[in-house]
Design a protein around this nucleic acid. Structure first.
Lengths: 257, 257
DNA sequence: TCTTATTTGTTCGTATGTATT
DNA sequence: GAATACATACGAACAAATAAG
């Protein structure tokens, strides 16, 4: 009979610190005691404390920084509505530009967004999703709108929208400002309104570029979301690759039977 | 200017081993060399190898076991359809009982499922979702159908379906076998067909019970899905809490604009 | 059943590196 | 430059699970 295995020391310490944070002993935004101090307090060595802290770091609860100390994170969990986020009402909610801004305004957070535009060579896994003989090839040229989105100046989302070149220019999406309602409203304006969507969600570790852009460690987890938008005629009109720090987001889907 | 920081040694080792696995040098189901052997091969110590392996373990790529050695995992990623999984056709697909069996049969995997039935005291976060004055209280009594689901005898899903007592008995869901089409078909039979669904998805570490049931480590990640089903009259008829090992599942959602 | 060897998990002590104050 | 703080690495030891005899 498998008796209760006592948890290893670094997990016990992690659990106690987790409780101390939740109970308010260490408040969001405040500093934890240094590792040597914690080692003293828990009667163990710095190596064990360091391992315990790295558990909480990976969970997104704290942010240890060399030379600076360890801070308790403060951002609340952001809820992302999967369906309806493309509805015009949601996108234009309280004057917000796009679904992201609306999501943050609901939490009282200040959104900001950096956009980079340009033609790119299609990654293989994106190209094949277009199901278009001219585009299936890896290396075909697509128009890309890369966005880095911030909440309170903390990066919380990466999104790269890939469009066929003709679509991008027809819908005037080669400009930075997509106007009220965002890119989907512009596509609708030229008769290319998205009619069907599909999202594939995975969880994985961030690659180097993502970790840098989102200020994550290599052992954090991100949602990797691929969204495919089609017109009524079933033409794939956009592929959007979205990366979200997993500990900062909750996905919310509603539908009718 | 922040020059390229070379990755730490344990990450370099992890990356090389990841490649070696993907390239086929170490095949799914086979054993990795022992830690001392790998330490020799990479010119480092066992401590560093151990840390590198724990990176790959957390990613779900390998399964180190004390005394036994380290095995390369073999289960493919399972795709879970969010919408449509409640459609009768999907549930009854190729004679399968329920959506889970259908998902696995599509991959050629053998499903198995253990069910535990009984009345339980409602967890607070479940009770409040029922929005029913008699049930809102923590500790109200609900009927629970707990399922542990296996693919090739590996546990890959936990699901606990909570129902009000009167609903459970009316729909005959207090019996183990829910018949063709599963529980939702039985609810429909008695005029309580679910009409609207909502799913909230989070990613977190498993608790002790989940880790045991799913054979996971404490630093793995799981999807924590809460599904709420309502009737046409908007009555919450079921709350389903689903736990999936994050590295084994992909979530697939399709919808019309 | 008992013993022994093997394998991974954890902890310690120490040392060094890197970033910040 | 010095002090502080976290990150990584090494070597050693022991614990716990397994396998082989």
């Amino acid at each position: 009979m498998p008796i209760e295995t006592p948890q290893p020391e670094y997990r016990q310490v992690a659990a106690e610190l987790r409780l101390a944070i939740r109970s308010g002993e260490f408040r969001p935004g405040s500093q934890l005691p240094s590792e040597p101090e914690l080692a003293e307090r828990f009667g163990t060595t710095r190596a064990t404390i360091n391992r315990a802290l790295s558990v909480l770091r990976t969970e997104g609860l704290i942010k240890p920084e060399r030379g600076r100390g360890t801070t308790v994170n403060k951002l609340p969990v952001i809820r992302r509505a999967t369906i309806g986020r493309q509805a015009r009402e949601a996108r234009e909610e309280s004057g917000a530009r796009g679904a992201f801004a609306a999501e943050l305004q609901r939490l009282g957070l200040t959104p900001r967004s950096d956009v980079t535009l340009g033609e790119v060579s299609a990654p293989a896994e994106v190209a094949e999703l277009f199901e278009d003989p001219d585009l299936v090839l890896e290396g075909a040229t697509l128009f890309a709108r890369r966005r880095v989105m911030f909440a309170e100046n903390v990066p919380v989302q990466l999104a790269t929208s890939y469009l066929p070149l003709d679509v991008a220019s027809a819908a005037q999406l080669t400009q930075e400002d997509t106007g009220p309602g965002g890119a989907y409203s512009r596509l609708a304006d030229v008769g290319l309104a998205p009619a069907r969507f599909r999202e594939l969600v995975r969880v994985r570790t961030p690659d180097d570029a993502e970790a840098r852009a989102l200020d994550l460690d290599a052992d954090h987890r991100v949602y990797d979301i691929t969204r495919i938008a089609r017109t009524v005629e079933d033409r794939v009109i956009e592929v959007n690759r979205i990366v979200l720090p997993a500990h900062q987001w909750e996905l919310d889907t509603e539908w009718e039977a």
